[in-house]
Design a protein around this nucleic acid. Sequence first.
DNA 1: TCTGGGGTCCTAGGACCC
DNA 2: TCTGGGGTCCTAGGACCC
Length: 433
Amino acid sequence: MTSIPHQYALVDGNNFYVSCERVFNPRLEGRPVVVLSNNDGCAVARSDEAKALGINMGQPHFQIRDLLKQHGGMALSSNYALYADMSRRMMSVIANYSPEQEVYSIDESFLRFAGFKHWDLTAHGARVRQQVKQWTGIPVGVGIGPTKTLAKLANRLAKRHPDFKAQGVCNLQDLEPWHQIRYFTEMDVQDVWGVGPRWAEKLRALGIESAQDLKQSDPETLRKRFNVVLERTIRELNGIHCIPLEEAPPPKKQIVSSRSFGQLLTDKNDLLEAVSTYSAQAAVKLRKEGQAASGLQVFLSTNNFNPDEPQYHPATLITLSSPTNDTARLIKAARGGLNRIFKPGFRYKKAGVMLVDLVSNSIRQGELFGLVEEPHLLRRGCLLEVLDSLNGQMGQGTLRFAAEGTGQPWRMRRNNLTPGYTTDWEGLVVVNC
DNA sequence: TCTGGGGTCCTAGGACCC
DNA sequence: TCTGGGGTCCTAGGACCC
């Protein structure tokens, strides 16, 4: 190959949720801190100090409570409004460093560098890092490589390997081939993007244990034993571009809103309220996406973790007569579904609503027998717009449907929630001089 | 006592059609 | 005894990601 291929960077927030909290509460620095999942269930983000204590991703809160206490640590409820807003800020800073950006997740962004041949990309990466830190307070790691998979791998080195951790940037182009082989050989095959625990186990059984082993495997053979996804990963490890940059997120194919309850539920009315609330939440997402749903699935679940408990995990799909994004219609469908699957005598832990068969609002077909209702539909549309805009300004749930209930005994636990520092006037940090 | 939530893609196999 | 073949669509299950 004569020309230098395009390069990709992966910029990724370190311990993102914890870092967001630390920006506004310096007392969290230097201590083990975890951020908990919904319902304060398990650890979904950990500070370096918490990782050093051996706290794992997804570990239940009750298992680590004492350990944290002993070490002066903290467990915070997740403050999603804060993280989403900090993410938006971080992404907009990163966007200044390339015309092509993919926002891959709440804390990760790919950049593509085409026509940057004469640039020192390592220095460029260092500038991204410095500026994100200065402008948002979030520390990030930067990995650079000729494919997205390699950029991911480089990012992992940047964040974890002692040789790069201090600078926080790793550009694979800077490494001599023998050097690269060493790092790839040190890396467990499961740490390659696209290889999960199941496949790692199967691969190890075939003698493929490191990233280097996988890189040198035959893509055709492994495609037959696994699938085309793993074949692509192998090619990407070898610098062959297979996974494109997605600058605009493709339209969603399904929208899920589900939640474990703060307590086990037996009363059908509580479940009806919960399912109505989840439908309303899903409907908001649906309208933001500019889509309408043709189907709605309702599901219920008892507590999986308790083997002594009688288990019941029903689900049902309701097909709507025409695609809709109207909260009222979706709530009605969901309640109908719940009535179908609910059985008394079980203690329910979780419920959810899934919107499926989504179609774009703009190309949506009129209902065969619905023409008479057009003016009515227009009015509904206006009503929903007002609802969304009011809730957008005043906070979700300010205005809601009666079916969602007022007591909401099933609401999730969030016992240690920090303020909405950047999204709520009440949450503004006050500095006493 | 206490164990998250929201997505995507791929494949195999069955149903159905001609 | 003997019972086609090829194509498409749909679904469930399994894997992955954050």
